[in-house]
Amino acid sequence: MKKLIALTAILLSAPVISDERAEIMANPCAACHGTAGKVENSAFMPLAGIKAEVFVKTMKEFRTGERDSTLMRGLALAYTDQELEAMGQYFESLPKGGEK
């Protein structure tokens, strides 16, 4: 019962970002980082299969400048922590090789 209450609290506290919404937010990334996070390009890293926590940490470091960037700082500043987490979960769920 306690678990159920805790669960309900979590679900009610913040608007849930659906998987589809996360995917829609992550789709612009594909222009550089590849469709479904897969790219073979010396300049841009693939995002398919990246651990969500690594994605979120990296984006937060772009925000502060702790991690240097050209345009990633601007992008990272536009999304909320919750949105970054959702996008990170999406990229983590993508297979690294082969077709989606």
Partner: peptide, 20 residues
């Protein structure tokens, strides 16, 4: 260096963007 890097990314973007 940042301007040079942006030019490198510009070229890389032509490829990745066309692919996407």
């Amino acid at each position: 260096t940042k301007h040079r890097l942006a030019a490198v990314y510009q070229q890389a973007w032509m490829k990745s963007f066309t692919e996407d």
